[in-house]
Design a protein around this nucleic acid. Structure first.
Lengths: 241, 241
DNA sequence: AAGTGGTCTAGACCACGGC
DNA sequence: CCGTGGTCTAGACCACTTG
């Protein structure tokens, strides 16, 4: 593991443990480079990680400070899978169930070929899952993935977490994703599986996700009951430009 | 302007102009440091900017490549104000109007004091605006801002863009924001101003936004007609950790 | 083996803020 | 003025991919 990442992890833990108070000074870069026996450049790389995470900020000429939102940010899951990997979000405090409504392998239609950048001969998984939290239907997930990119999906994996399988078993890294978020009226499936009434809105998120090698691996649509799906996002503006 | 930012800007323009084809090699770092007469470290800082923007990616041992999504990412506005500053988003191709429904200055209630981290004696603006695109009501915006942080808001500014005023006139920098996105049933105001029927869903985004000095400056809620508000987001996973 | 990106160093100078 | 963070250098070595 690179030194700057280890330093960042150490510092992140310090922030979590409130070793430095909000809006109180962080140790200066000189002190940190002595403490970790490294150069200032390496310290700066470590600090940059925490800055992009929003945990700290620096003022030139003044110092580095713990952001007042540090605690809140830590609670927010900022990973790509945050709206998909329901397992991670609620696994600790709630009882999660997945009902597999559909799980087939078939050839893609035009829009799927386009989104996943595959040919009509490349097979895809076509998965529909209903997520149930504490016995209450929560979200309907429609997932399409190319078999050649994510081989070996099984019923067993679907019941747990696809993302965990991709990261830990296939050892692939997730890079980025495009999302479209909108409100919609409920359709027949929503009414049936999510117990929606006609006037109950749906929060829909359509996503195309990419590996860090620029390969699309997922094209999905998730539909939440309006009173269950609350998306929380932290946005950091990219200062440079 | 720092050298690495200028290099990043130059390279970004090159990507925009398709001077390097998608998934085709980018010049290597050695070549770039010669071209810009600088060190490799500086080149890497420049490349890092484009990487966090998702425009390029690198594979160790192999090279640097233009991301296949580069074009799409450029179209997506990734600024903090993307859902507030309707002006920027549609200003060029559509006719935008703002109707000021309410504009008062008053003392904050408990939740506003909390969100904006101010005392009950600190005045806030209380602004309600209806945004109209091409003669069609689009979104209702409820904005609260502390007067002491953003002084001098006037009717004139409200008709244009608050964000432009903050950045250009007050010369403040926007740092980050928390957003909560959800679907909701329409309320009386939605029905009146957005012409919603009872079964027309609303897309609601609640936001607290911060300056880069960690000071909250905006607590807002925007409500879109379900058939008008489409939020598009690009998410880059932070590799390190 | 050669070429690529990733990390790291030990300094230097500058810009800014506060005393 | 001094102490802070921001930028930049000219190398070095390592890790990885590809021929």
């Amino acid at each position: 593991m690179a030194k700057y990442i280890e330093i960042a992890n150490t510092l992140r833990t310090s922030v979590s443990n409130h070793e430095y108070k909000n809006n109180d000074p962080f140790p200066d870069q000189q002190a940190l480079s002595k403490k970790f026996s490294t150069s200032r450049m390496t310290i700066q790389k470590a600090l940059n990680i925490l800055k992009t995470e929003g945990l700290i900020y620096s003022k030139q000429g003044s110092g580095t400070f713990v952001s007042s939102n540090a605690d809140l940010i830590e609670q927010t899951d900022l990973e790509i899978n945050q709206y998909i990997g329901t397992t991670d979000l609620f696994g600790k405090t709630h009882k999660i169930n997945s009902k597999i409504i559909k799980f087939t392998i078939r050839y893609p239609d035009k829009s799927e070929q386009n989104a996943l950048r595959i040919s009509k001969k490349d097979l895809i998984y076509d998965i529909t899952r209903l997520r149930i939290v504490d016995e209450e239907p929560y979200v309907l997930e429609y997932t399409k993935m190319p078999v050649k990119v994510i081989p070996g999906i099984s019923d067993d994996i679907l019941k747990k977490s696809i993302y965990h399988y991709i990261k830990s078993d296939l050892n692939l890294k997730i890079g980025s994703a495009f999302r479209k978020i909108r409100a919609d009226k409920p359709n027949l499936f929503d009414k049936k599986f999510l117990n929606c009434k006609n006037e109950d809105p749906i929060l829909e998120i359509t996503q195309t996700a990419f590996l860090n090698s620029d390969i699309p691996f997922e094209f999905s649509r998730v539909r939440y009951r309006y009173d269950k799906g609350n998306m929380v996002v932290f946005v950091k503006s990219s200062f440079e430009r």
